[in-house]
Amino acid sequence: MSDTTMDKSGTGKPGFLSAATLQKAVAFVVLIALVLFFSIFANNFATGANAVGIMQATAVNGVLGVAVTFVIISGGIDLSVGTMMTLTAVTAGLVLTNLGMPLPIGILAAIAAGAFMGAVSGVVIAKLKIPPFIATLGMMQIARGLALVFSGAKPIYFNDTPSYSLLSPESTISKLIPGVEIPNGVMIMFIVAIIASIVLNRTIIGRMIFALGSNEEAARLSGINIDNWKILTYAICGGICGIAGLIVSSRLNSAQPALGLGYELDAIAAVVIGGTSLAGGRGTVMGTIIGAFIMSVLTNGLRVMGVLEEWKIVVTGVIIIVAVFIDIVLRKRA
């Protein structure tokens, strides 16, 4: 087929990038339009404090979205990100509060726990050939159960580690640049996004993740050990869930073991709205962050307008479908 389409674009611009970039641009335009809309129609929406509030409401979903972006680009799916986040938060609580270890150890433990559980999912998928949907559905329950078991089904508090608030509510940047009251949790989200972007675009890890998602068999026949790369992909996803776990538990000053169910769907929605294809091989981290912002701006704006929670849920659903529709239209054109 493509024999006849040779050099159609002729620009040297990779078509898949331009499609993803285009949709990222579409998502960005939607975000701006939403902000403008609410600024005009919702009293008290356009204030600095609310902007910070929106960012804070985005942080956890944004980080989880970045985590699952890796997996989705690789052609997989991870339904366990929400409960994995909870498990890592509980891990941090065990290490910091119950064992009294210093903060850096707690941070490492949470990320390591996430990476380890992610790697387990990866092994199950790559070696046992269990479809990702099912493997991570199982992992979702395993992580949730372990979080309850390890915590004794009780929240774990971080009162003995006052510096734990550094991970989310505190604003280090406001001390450096007065007036910029962005909480650390939000800054961490941006840093995670930037690093993730670099990993996906500049490192061999990212290259392999795109290759897996575009054409796993071709990658395998190129002599690439696809199993190892898959396991690494899920481990990265789990490790990033660990960061989300730190942010959420820092914000609540406690690891709440019952939290987390349903967060995976919000994260996947952010990824999809941000233009990453669920079919794999295509997507951007920045798109996911924009997607997460679209969801939280929508939620916040509708609440500020006093729209009922029930309708907010309906509108979010509509946005997801519209986003995927745009994705399909753009992909046909590209």
Binding site: N44, G53, V248, R251, L252, Q256, N300, R303, L308, E309
Partner: peptide, 21 residues
């Protein structure tokens, strides 16, 4: 308004306070 977990309650309450200072 309605919110079924601590994180969602936080963000909901902040938005409500924003709307009604």
């Amino acid at each position: 308004q309605y919110a079924n977990d601590a994180v969602k309650a936080t963000d909901t309450i902040k938005a409500m306070l924003q709307a009604n200072p």
